[in-house]
Amino acid sequence: MMTRPKGKERFIYLFLVFSGYATLTILCVIMGYIFLKGIGHVSLDFLTQSPRKMGAEGGIFPVIVGTLYFVALTVLIAAPIGVGAAIYLNEYTREGTITKIIRFGTELLAGIPSIIFGLFGYAFFVVLLGDFTQGWSLLSGALTATCMVLPTIVRTSEEALKSVPRALREASLALGATKWQTIYKIVLPTGLPGILTGIILGIGRAIGETAALLLTLGGSLLLPQSIFHGTRTLSMHLYMVAMETGNMDAAFATGVILIIIVLLINFTANYLIKKLINRNSTAAIRR
């Protein structure tokens, strides 16, 4: 710790400290406000009943189910591709032109705004592949979201794989394991918490996403019957209820549920990261 500066520097110092606390305050204010306004409206009925009047009244049951289906489908498609990409980049190739292109593409993809994904998903999955995806559907939405969360999963998984000590790979290979056996039995299990973190962060992004889904997931309030039916997620529902029905109570209540999910996701991710660090540092200490 530094000693407190004097004179003009004191103002700068105070501004720095103020900013730090301001960030914390902003978070508390936003979350607290949504919570206070919405929690009174959250009830068992709200969670288990179907919406009426476009969501202005009634509950959000189909929306919760739709969100779960959507997230599950997205993870099912995105996780194998993302983790596979990370394995390829980290285990199967050396840095060169091809990895440069792949990394560049992945980074670029991470920065593309969601509405562009929406336009793309609409043109490609909804319209062009419409015969297969049935237009606006869980499948179209999940495929679009897959494109969006892919960079998150790839990056985080790659970090996780990098944290696996080299000594473990060598030990396995020296025992006569093939490359894939080594990856499958040693590297992936050891890096699992980090990989899960990537997937969970991806889930977070998919749950928070709205713009791209407005153009691909449809927005139906009916309980989805299959991946070829449309649905809406909590974020979409919040937006539609707030903007189309003007019932802010229902919007805030949906916001509360969203915030709770986001909190859960964050805590889980942090817990897993800690676990990864602990595990691999105990293995690495003896290097």
Binding site: G204, G208, S235, L238, A242, M248, F252, G255, L258
Partner: peptide, 13 residues
């Protein structure tokens, strides 16, 4: 957390 909060929540606020 600030980074994880969905856009629509910011919009609502």
């Amino acid at each position: 957390l600030l980074a994880a909060i969905p856009s629509v929540i910011y919009g609502l606020f």
